[in-house]
């Protein structure tokens, strides 16, 4: 008699999926002495809008703002853990962590979960120690770089090429004897951010409802016409450091 090992037929088990996608888009642009970080406020799953107001952009310190996009539960938990680390840093060093250090901290925290990643695209904006506006963008497992502008999330493929054209002046030739500006003025940047989100809202179902634009101004810089903007409120906590503002606007709700 032959003895053959027959594998027992196992009952099929539906695997639990620990991830979801909650839509939305984020965007950040760095200026010479300011940084603008924006995100829409719609949170969705599939074709259902869960809420019309769920912030994706978070103030970390007086000079750092973090925008998260992807799986909302991971995003919120990640922001919570970053804030905890920043608080520990404050207790240990009696000062806020510098922006480039926050960027490296975020890369380390993301890579620590390399084999069970936070399903989140992060964009960090703020003011560097030298007073320049900065944007750092990350992938879910921690690859990062400093850039002048970045869009991420559901409508990133709609917004990023527009930004290439309008911020980096890609495919545009400067008039003879002139060069393109390396940094744009704040009012111009704000117009581009608003245009980007109205465009994304028009063509992407997961983008809309509300827009939150955070503006961080370097120490001692002028308002640059910011005071004339509607829906502006100031979040600054000290009177001798960077100033932070948020602009809240409506986007189409359909």
């Amino acid at each position: 008699m032959q003895h053959v090992a027959v594998p027992h037929a196992q009952p099929q088990q539906r695997q639990f999926n620990p991830y979801s996608e909650n839509g939305g888009t984020i965007l950040a642009i760095a200026g010479a002495n300011f940084s603008v970080i924006a995100g829409d406020t719609r949170q969705s799953e599939g074709y259902s809008i869960q809420t019309r107001y769920a912030p994706k952009v978070f103030r970390l310190t007086d000079k750092a703002v973090l925008a998260t996009n992807g799986f909302a539960a991971d995003g919120n938990m990640f922001v919570k853990k970053v804030r905890q680390r920043l608080e520990w840093y404050r207790h240990a060093h009696a000062k806020d962590m510098p922006l480039r250090a926050i960027a490296r901290l975020i890369q380390t925290m993301l890579y620590a979960r390399r084999f069970f990643p936070y399903y989140v695209y992060n964009i960090l904006g703020g003011i560097e120690e030298d007073g320049s506006g900065a944007v750092y963008s990350f992938d879910p497992v921690g690859s990062y770089e400093r850039e002048a502008c970045r869009a991420a999330g559901a409508a990133s493929s709609l917004v990023q090429p527009f930004l290439d054209n309008q911020i980096y002046f890609k495919n545009q030739t400067p008039a003879p004897g002139t060069t393109h500006p390396a940094h744009l003025p704040l009012s111009h940047v704000l117009s581009l951010v608003i245009d980007s989100f109205t465009s994304a809202t028009e063509r992407h179902i997961e983008v809309g409802d509300g827009l939150e634009i955070y503006v961080v101004l370097a120490k001692g810089s002028a308002l640059q016409g910011l005071d004339a903007i509607q829906g502006l409120s100031e979040l600054t906590t000290t009177d001798d450091g960077e100033r932070m503002f948020v602009i809240r606007r409506n986007l189409k709700r359909d």
Binding site: A155, S157, L158, P161, F162, N165, S199, E202, R203
Partner: peptide, 9 residues
């Protein structure tokens, strides 16, 4: 998708 985004802008 990219064409939609840029054209809309």
């Amino acid at each position: 998708e990219k064409l939609f985004g840029v054209a809309e802008g």
